[in-house]
Design a binder for these strands. Structure first.
Lengths: 341, 341
DNA sequence: TTGTAGGCGTTATCAG
DNA sequence: CTGATAACGCCTACAA
């Protein structure tokens, strides 16, 4: 029952399978890839041989032969960020179901790094590339997509092998702000993310939408731009507080900044939610365990990862992907409360 | 100045470089790999050609030819965990400096997944494997190391191509507990991680050490086992509270459980640090931004990643790695306080 | 020191 | 439907 192996490390080649099954290597290859019709008899023989020998195709050789490497590149920004972590998990899980392996490379929010990341991926002969946000120009991305299937999350791009989708950040931003307004808040501060991201801009637009709908004028003193990190959120609060505009509520456009803001407020002796109601965005795990548990806008980052992977698989299959993302939804927890005054 | 390219996608091969430089492909290869001495003249010519053409060796072909793929596999447990995220960042950064690319595969704390992960990595012809903790038996890991350089973090293993190192978890556990004792606490509860990990066991041993040194008897009622997650920490607190043993301090053996515990305490109307002093372990970013900021034991997870990568690079170079990890250190923040009464 | 030839494990292109 | 025969891009004896 033990798998015989001619080579020291137990690696069985397609050729050995062919020999054992009494067919040619090409036939084995055809059966493996469904490239052409093969008689049932040979199919059976080959499959038996594969099982007997414990054969597993060598992705490296496949890659070289112009076939697929069964790997897809993923350009993330900061692999250590909790946000990306959840997305990567979704990607990995979904890809695995189809036998693909993700290859993660960080772009570090830096155009050059990102460009290099993609180059690395291309030289590794990945079958496709998934780009999570990033700074590269649309034109540059589109060009890469000429030679490779590509999925871009967080932008609107068009192309034959190019698929992109975004979460409805604008609606999410509106929901967050609306929630605060419904609770009687009128002076609502806003911490924007890096406005290079469409995501950040859209969340801000949602904020504007909600204010407009409620007939509240935008007060530039209540808006500050930051960078989506905890440290940035904390700093943003300081800047907000240095201006004299008072606010009773704060919408930080992601959970990490909200957490940082919470500490910043604490340092100034402002309590959440007693003195300031706070809303985040993303609903990362940290939001649920924040103190107080953070009201936020749910976007399933994991689902986004799964969606990106699904789309890529479909592209690889030559089809037209469709991604159905869940609608954004407000998750009310304990960091917000009705204004009493 | 534009790089000429004979192939549509601008891919330049070693052969083209050879032709342009007027030498044979093998000479180019030799220069690239330092495999043999080559005359300076040809060296220069080849290097010029490489620059002119923008040649970048194809790792896939290299891998097939039995050379290196310049990629190292990394078996992580849960890629989305903040803990692993930081380690992976360190690995990626360090590897990149040497032109290597990491290939992350999740083991999901599951023996079978982990085995499959390693198999995947092997079939991809990675040059080496880094294993972060995990459930595979020592014997199994050692066997893999027979055919491949391997670095294991969090265990003690020996082998020619095998290097392992651990953070001093025991000392860390002792420091955390000592800190609580120094503040006058005697009834100190402990939330253990999954005791399958050596890490978890060692941290617990540190807890025992400190108690013993202070002449405090171990009370089994104050110890509960959990799983290193936020949810687990929260649950653990419930279980602790259901038993009637009172405690004034709590040492959760990682930050994630500490955060979860904090929420659990909050739900029972117990305040940190007023009612219960809380210490975590790891000093992840979340600890700094927890509310209140969490006292914890600093182990630079990022440094661990860098260390693992450095060791792997050294192994690949045929050398004997040495990793100098920073000593564990207590970071006192605001979740602990002196016992008053 | 250098070049030639063969091979790594698959897939793709042709003939049959 | 099936089998030779070339690639794929690079490395490594072996020979010169």
């Amino acid at each position: 029952m033990k798998a015989p192996s001619s080579r020291p490390d137990g690696v069985v080649t397609l050729e050995q399978v062919a020999e054992q099954a009494g067919v040619s290597p090409s036939t084995v290859s055809r059966i493996l890839n469904g490239t052409a019709a093969v008689s049932q008899a040979k199919k059976d023989a080959v499959q038996a041989a594969i099982r007997d020998l414990g054969f597993r195709p060598n992705p490296v050789a496949r890659g070289l032969a112009g076939g697929r490497t069964l790997s897809v590149g993923v350009v993330t920004q900061i692999i250590s960020s909790p946000f990306y972590g959840e997305a990567l998990l979704g990607i990995e899980r979904e890809l695995e179901r189809a036998g693909y392996v993700p290859m993660f490379v960080s772009g570090n929010w830096h155009e050059d790094d990102e460009r290099k990341a993609i180059e690395t991926l291309l030289s590794r002969r990945v079958d496709g590339v998934i780009v999570l946000a990033g700074r590269l120009s649309d034109a540059e991305l589109t060009k890469v997509a000429d030679s490779l299937p590509m999925v871009v999350v967080g932008r609107q791009l068009e192309g034959p092998q190019l698929f992109s989708f975004s979460f409805d950040n604008r609606l999410g931003g509106r929901l967050a702000t609306q929630h605060l307004i419904e609770q009687g808040h009128r002076r609502i501060a806003f911490i924007a993310g890096d406005l290079i991201h469409e995501d950040a801009v859209e969340r801000q637009n949602g904020y504007f939408d909600a204010l407009a709908a409620a007939g509240i004028a935008v007060d530039p003193n209540l808006i500050v731009q930051s960078d989506f990190t905890e440290a940035g959120g904390m700093l943003a609060v300081s800047r907000l507080l240095e201006r004299d505009g008072r606010f009773t509520a704060l919408f930080a456009s992601n959970d990490q900044m909200a957490i940082g803001a919470c500490l910043g407020l604490h340092r100034r002796n402002l309590r959440v939610p007693d003195d300031v109601s706070l809303v985040g965005f993303d609903d990362l795990i940290m939001a649920r365990y924040a103190m107080p548990p953070l009201t936020t806008v749910r976007q399933s980052v994991y689902e986004i990862g799964v969606g990106a992977a699904t789309a890529m698989l479909e592209l690889l299959r030559g089809g037209k992907p469709k991604v159905q993302l869940p609608e954004p939804a407000l998750v009310a927890r304990e960091s917000t409360r009705r204004m009493t005054r």
